[in-house]
Amino acid sequence: MKTKILMAMALFSGLYLVRNLYVILLQLPDEAAQGAIYRIMYFHVPGWITSFSAYFLAAVASIYYLVKRDSRADEFAVALTEVGTIFTMLGLGTGMVWARIIWGVWWVWDPRLTWAFICFLIYAGYLLLRKTIDEPGQRARIAAVVSLFAFVSVVITYKSIDWWRTQHPGAVLSFRTGGEQRMDPAMEHMLFQNWFALTAFAGVIMMLRLGQERMQRELDALRRYTHNL
């Protein structure tokens, strides 16, 4: 039953992404100032939002773990963080391609970009750290604390376009500009649709990773058990 729901979700998000691609590439017009390359925004912006949502949920799961000591929360935290890191890489990658075309360089050391990169480094450190601790309880405890520390960098990255003068485009989505329409409604609508599709896709791979993590734990427990025999 569970696998069937997961399969259905995967199919849905896959088809939705294909349909979105069709609209993005063939129906929506080029943007006036940037030309065709602006389309990368439909993946860049939702990718980052998905990534940060995953980190946020991982922080919530970590708090839950620290309060209740429920190892299932730790499973969620690791699955969410891994998916978040993948989407961080997607965000950095798409941003770099866009920057190469618009700014002429792959990378600039601008506050927003720098913070995003710091975020990536910190969460990469979190994942590395998990690999080096064998004892599950200790691993979950330490990882939960690090996850909370790391989330501060997410908040700073999110707010960095407001706090510093940066080369990165400022807020355009209506929920961040206080309702002011800074982008064509059709384009914004499409961006939200692709956000939904990407989030559904992220949910699917998160659930798959969660299943792997559970299997891994069961294996580890069996291994410990046979070792003690």
């Binding site: 480094l121 910190i122 450190g125 979190y126 590395l128 750290l129 690090v146 960098s153």
Partner: peptide, 11 residues
Amino acid sequence: ELMLPVLVYPM
């Protein structure tokens, strides 16, 4: 010794 710099410097 390996993990400390990897975690501390980005923070």
